[in-house]
Design a binder for these strands. Structure first.
Lengths: 248, 248
DNA sequence: CCAGATACCGCACAAAAATGCAGGAATATT
DNA sequence: AATATTCCTGCATTTTTGTGCGGTATCTGG
């Protein structure tokens, strides 16, 4: 294994779990402790990780870059792990923005060959890290608050595609109110994505379950798969299972 | 087997597996290690692969965007300062990607109210930091190496706009060869921007002056303003002044 | 067709890089 | 404070790289 390859694995591990132990890397990569240490030093010198006693931390986690994003991070990482299992080679995938989607992007396996369509600037950056993923950026006016593109041009571009999957970062979901949100521009983009996809996946941490916002994206019945950090058999999710959703 | 044939095999292997070992190529192609090494060096010099100890990696796999080491940073900051003076409230502005453009984006005054059109992911991020700047993202396929959007969709979106200014991060400029570059997709996007703008501005550090690449973006006469880190009266820039360019 | 120029290839040897090991120093843990 | 873990430094070994050289193939302009 090449040195650069090894360092890429380390980076991937760090970004996935936000931390990594030297000992863990030793057995994961089958090299000596010194080699790992040298790699960590190089990566730290290059500013790609934060080295600490016993291992290393992800830069974005430690640094003030997006402290706000760490809200419910472990839950979102669990959701991300479940979500990536749905994606297969060759698929066309829509994704919205949001921190849960970002975690999913970071968790994608290196070998995956798929095409991702997104209007989210941060998500696009993450997809770019993956060598075999083709990224199609949906263009139009950039919303400053959500950092995704919105507007008629974006919707027109979405309509030109028929994707296999659509991953929606979810603000509020309720069996009666459906999937709802609070930004009109964002809602319209999500609507377009739902309509242009064969299967719709809602990624929602459990505190969003059974809540509603003002603006409707789609009915609960339009959602094919619901992914939360909970056990699929959890009582809270029963109504969604009964409504015919796949619950993961 | 011809040299080019062999190098094509190497490129194919690299793009397929993201990496390739020198030893593997030796037995795959039945030539000496030295020949492989020379091939890898040539391909790396041409920018088609990234050479590392023990083999080579594909360009897209190598995540080498260190925010830390921007080449010729002081020069680029000077250029940025000159460039932002051209932008006035209410203007529509096209920008390409590249580190010089990025410095310009960082240098923009907070009060500026303008509309920026770009296909560059990093540049878009910077524009987003400015409260009164409207950002229109040009969508399409994201090029992994340059992190800008390229393709017919991007060009179609550019054509829909008539901008006041177009800032081109410049790879090579020469009074006879004009403005040139080495990536076909990027060239086409730049061409479209030049055609859709009233005034075209080339941002170039002085070492790019009087150099040329393979692919032509536009003639020297199509460029209205040339900005370098040098004094506008510098001898090196005389031919450009004589050709009628504004030199800043 | 031929002679000279040019490019290409493999070998040998020296330089550089990568890796692992041993020890003592530094740091965490109890 | 005592103990265990982790870290750093120097060193030896292996692998990889760069370079000069000679032989061979290919191109080019009479």
């Amino acid at each position: 294994m090449l040195k650069e390859e090894r360092q890429n694995v380390i980076l991937h591990e760090v970004n996935l779990h936000n931390k990594v132990l030297t000992t863990h890397l030793v057995e994961r990569l089958n090299v000596s402790e010194d080699t790992i240490r040298r790699d960590l030093n190089e990566l730290a010198d290059a500013g790609r990780i934060i080295k600490v006693h016993g291992g290393a931390l992800s830069r974005s986690f430690h640094n003030s870059f997006n402290i706000t994003d760490v809200y419910s991070l472990p839950e979102k990482k669990r959701i991300a792990q479940k979500a990536i299992r749905l994606i297969q080679d060759g698929m066309f995938v829509f994704t919205t923005g949001g921190t849960t989607i970002l975690e999913m992007a970071r968790a994608l396996p290196q070998h995956l060959r798929a095409t991702f369509f997104t209007g989210s600037l941060p998500a696009a950056f993450e997809y770019l890290q993956h060598p075999h993923i083709e990224v199609i950026l949906i263009g139009d006016r950039l919303s400053k608050s959500s950092r995704i593109t919105v507007g008629g041009g974006a919707i027109a571009q979405i309509r030109q595609v028929k994707a296999d999957l659509c991953f929606l970062g979810t603000n509020a979901i309720d069996i009666h109110a459906g999937l709802t949100d609070n930004d009109l521009d964002v809602v319209q983009v999500k609507k377009a994505m739902v309509e242009s996809s064969s299967r719709v996946v809602s990624l929602a941490i459990s505190e969003k379950i059974n809540t509603a916002q003002r603006l409707k994206v789609c009915n609960a019945t339009d959602i094919d798969i619901l992914i939360t950090e909970l056990d699929p058999l959890d009582e809270l999710l029963a109504p969604y299972r009964d409504a015919g959703m796949e619950v993961h």
